[in-house]
Structures are given as C-alpha cells and as structure tokens.
C-alpha cells in the first residue's frame, strides 16, 4: 500500500535506474484506466489485451533507452501511445476488413468470382467466331489494317510501314473498318454480347 503514495515520476525514475518492481506498481496503478480506455474504443477483449501489451512494450522500450522526458505526466503519455495504437488498429482493419459468416450475412454476397462460367465461355467463343466471319466481309484494305491492329497488336506506324501507306490512311481504314462492321451488324441484326 505504501507504493500508492509514491508519485509516478519517482516510480519512473526508479524503474529507469533498474528497479523492476516500480514497473509492476505503475502497471497495477494504471492498468484499469488504460485497459478501460482501449476497451471502450475497441470493444473486443482479446484485441484490447494485444493493444495494452503493445502499449507497455513501447513504454518499456522508451524508458529503458532513456528516451522518456518527464515533461508531462506518465499516464497521459501512456494513454497517447495506446490512442495511437488504436488508430493504427483501425487503419489496418479498414484496409483489411474482417467478415464473419452469419445467418443474415454471407461472405459470398460481397465476394464474387469474375471468371466466366462454362456458358459464358461458350458464348464468348461463339462471339469471336462470328466476329471473324464478319471481318471477312470487309474490303481487303480495311480488313488488313484491322487484323494487323487488333489480332497482331501492331502499331499504326508499323502497319503504315508494312502496307506502304501513310499513318493517316491506315487510321482512316481502321475507322472505316469499324464503321462497316457496325453497319453489317446493324443490317443483319446480329447480337454480339456475352
């Protein structure tokens, strides 16, 4: 009980000088306030215990490396450390939110598999086959530019060099190729969707 009358500043000084019991007294004196503060923000006992532990690890490291200035009071300083750790915790959980499966909430309602289903793949294959057939209907010069650009991934500069026309002509042919494709699709009311 005598410990209760020793001010925090003196206990800190004793601890820095090597008296380990001083730390036990400091923790015992303030554990309730600090843990209560953390728990009031976190509302999870296990996480609160972790943050309480991390707080005091920082306190111990700072005191042992003689980096603590007794400018303010001990408790507000520890509270500030725990406050910063709480903020860090919320930042982490915000980046990596944890979801638990419950009756009302299923994890699959927010997660989806974007890969195509078998049906989707079949439709996509069909669309690609249909499109190739449509491209065959285009005039030769336009078809050539479109195939080089879309299927061989060539730049318009490369296309112009290879076909011996200017870049502007190649661009124009591409534009007409796309317009003509749209016309053919509209005319025959072809639906290309996936």
């Amino acid at each position: 009980m005598a410990d209760l009358h020793i001010p925090d500043a003196l206990l800190v000084k004793n601890y820095v000088e090597g008296n380990e019991n001083a730390l036990a007294t400091l923790i015992k004196r303030h554990e309730s306030k600090i843990y209560g503060f953390i728990y009031s923000k976190i509302a999870d006992r296990d996480v609160s215990n972790d943050i309480f532990q991390d707080t005091f690890i920082k306190v111990i490291k700072t005191l042992k490396s003689n980096c603590y200035n007794e400018e303010g009071k001990f408790l507000p300083w520890v509270m500030r450390i725990s406050h910063n750790l709480i903020v860090d915790h919320f930042r982490k959980t915000k980046k990596m939110p944890m979801y638990r499966e419950t009756e009302e909430f299923s994890i699959f309602s927010i997660m989806s598999d974007d890969s195509l289903t078998i049906e989707g793949k079949m439709i996509l294959d069909q669309v690609e086959v249909d499109l190739k057939k449509l491209i065959q209907e285009l005039p030769e010069d336009q078809k050539e530019v479109l195939v080089m650009r879309m299927y061989q991934d060539m730049s318009f500069k490369e296309i112009s060099e290879l076909t011996g026309v200017s870049i502007n002509t190649a661009l124009g042919r591409m534009r007409y190729a796309l317009m003509n494709l749209r016309k053919i699709i509209d005319k025959h009311q072809i639906i290309l969707t996936n």
């Binding site: 554990e31 309730s32 532990q53």
Partner: peptide, 13 residues
C-alpha cells in the same frame, strides 16, 4: 472494473 489479463501483465514484467 476492466483489467487486462494476468498473463499479459506477467508477460510485460
């Protein structure tokens, strides 16, 4: 009366 686990305090010491 909220307090951290005894294990936590003992670990810290």
């Amino acid at each position: 009366d909220l307090k951290p686990k005894k294990e936590v305090v003992s670990f810290l010491l």
